[in-house]
Design a protein around this nucleic acid. Sequence first.
DNA 1: ACCGGTCAGGTAAGCGCTTTCCTGCACAGA
DNA 2: TCTGTGCAGGAAAGCGCTTACCTGACCGGT
Lengths: 355, 355
Amino acid sequence: MSLVAATAAGATREGAGVATLSDVARRAGVSPATASRVINGSSKPVTEELRERVLRAVAELQYVPNAHAQLLARSHRGAVGVIVHDVSDPYFSEITRGLQRVATDQGRLLMICNSYRDPERELEYVELLRGQQVAAIVLAGSGYHDADFTRLLNGKLAAYEATGGRVAVIGRHEHSGDAVMPDNRGGGELLGQELCRLGHEHIGVVAGPRVLTTITDRLTGLRAALAEHGRDLPEHRIRYVDFDRDGGAEATAGLLDAEPGLTAIAALNDSMAIGALALLRARAVPVPQQVSVFGFDDMPMARDVTPALTTVRLPLVEMGVRAMALALDPGAASPRVESLAAELIRRDSAGPAPR
Amino acid sequence: MSLVAATAAGATREGAGVATLSDVARRAGVSPATASRVINGSSKPVTEELRERVLRAVAELQYVPNAHAQLLARSHRGAVGVIVHDVSDPYFSEITRGLQRVATDQGRLLMICNSYRDPERELEYVELLRGQQVAAIVLAGSGYHDADFTRLLNGKLAAYEATGGRVAVIGRHEHSGDAVMPDNRGGGELLGQELCRLGHEHIGVVAGPRVLTTITDRLTGLRAALAEHGRDLPEHRIRYVDFDRDGGAEATAGLLDAEPGLTAIAALNDSMAIGALALLRARAVPVPQQVSVFGFDDMPMARDVTPALTTVRLPLVEMGVRAMALALDPGAASPRVESLAAELIRRDSAGPAPR
DNA sequence: ACCGGTCAGGTAAGCGCTTTCCTGCACAGA
DNA sequence: TCTGTGCAGGAAAGCGCTTACCTGACCGGT
């Protein structure tokens, strides 16, 4: 035991065992208070000589303040937390880019958490961020059709807000606070109108998980537009699959096998549309001559696939910017909701229905 | 003044002003120690009745422990930090996925920082992570040809390691600790060999920023392979541009304008290759009939562009996995270096040189 | 009836920092 | 020479939590 202790002491001797503020103070021959003041550039004046001694000690010891201790002492709340489904998904990369921009401009640190579309994990992250004393939480990404979960989440958010935390959500109508809402329904309508304009009658829809409100919103818009033109959208022409490339390919295969006569595939996000494109290419189905493909979101990749994807653009970066602005601005008491319009982007993957 | 104080007190009254452990303890009629014990499931036994009282108080107050206070008290070092150039770049998304996986398996929280290829910011993040008391720091992404910076960074990392922190780097030979090294040079050779095999003589290279060691390594390999076949690579056929899609398009345009007879464009990453593809398409240059295009990295998108990209694959996810494993395993004292081989992936964007 | 052993629970000492408040000094004015 | 003013620097009180250590009640054994 004493051997161990001795060894440890030996190791700790010079350097190891992180240098603390009082180490610095001792080395500089000043009080911790003074050391703290020069290190943080406090408004309180310190003689040039002492300042230098402290700075030298800091350099020599490679001192870095313990952020946790600082936060505890200051109770400052500098960072802001972000919960997204998955940053490596371009949809969220773009949103995050917008969030980042504003946060960085305001000198805030961003903590990004991936929920991987797991409501449970989302709840956990709210707690975690709360524990980290973040100044605000931004929740990005579709909500869930799950009343229990929604209530639980709202409860947690409310508790956080009650203690002075700020909350902003992106694309979730279930939460009652500040929100920026992309017009998913409107985007769906745009899609439906284009489909009709091009004369498509036999339309397969590649939808994501049914439990996401984003999906049902887009679907609702699409349905409405089709209905206006006297077309309906039978349930068997909708496939609910994973929200990614492979899901898109799988759904397209299924759709085509069931109804070879389809002239259009409307995917409810770009990743799935790209999967659809890949499958059609594999089957040597000419796009858009035989089958048109539509995406949704307009992620950067959409213009680089071949044929370039016709899709509904959502101003992703802008959504991030707005959300962070809301989150960081205590502003009006009333919950603010900013709606952002969708826009149809015509490229090469969609054309008139073959006769 | 007193008015302000009164108002504040009023606001703080019930709830606001985050509930603390002692609030919980008071409400449950126990000591903070007991409250802490039941909340953290300490090994010390607590009567069922008290336990329940505490738990109820926690629920009623929506109590969430202050993570900073906990960390300070425990001096635990749970989280691990990651510094990458940009998570929204697929190259890093993939690596990060690997890092995540291992970290999550070991119950570690990941803090991800984007340096946006700014050495200055990289330095700052090392300090920041150190201040956060992370257990390890993983540095991913090319190093820089900049001796001053390298020395500075090494100094900071050494200081961190001296206090018990662990460091692992991905693809940086400048740091002397544990590392996982993708074989950039070997990948460059693979590329060069394929180029020769296909009979290309007039080759344009779309390179990223010259200051990145990754670029020079790939270039060195490429040059070596070409030299072996008696071909050289004149400097004017290399364009150093931004490491992204637009850079790739721009460089390709320049290259083609200067030498219309080029039969191959070798881009030193996939994003730039995709930019090259886009430009060629815009100019209606058939790929690969007239010009072959090669990428590097094999990011997921590479198979979805048209024509699908011939590229050099790096095991990105695996790199992340290995790096995190090294970072979390104190292991052997000697610095461990794991090398990961590159692999040529033949797709449709490259073909024999036209005669 | 007394003593040692158990054991639930409380007390208090930090963790590393910030910041308020106080001290002691130097100087100016009378 | 004495008091008042200003000001640099230090002492110490927390920030919210964990945990080593202490206390006191209760048990069985002699």
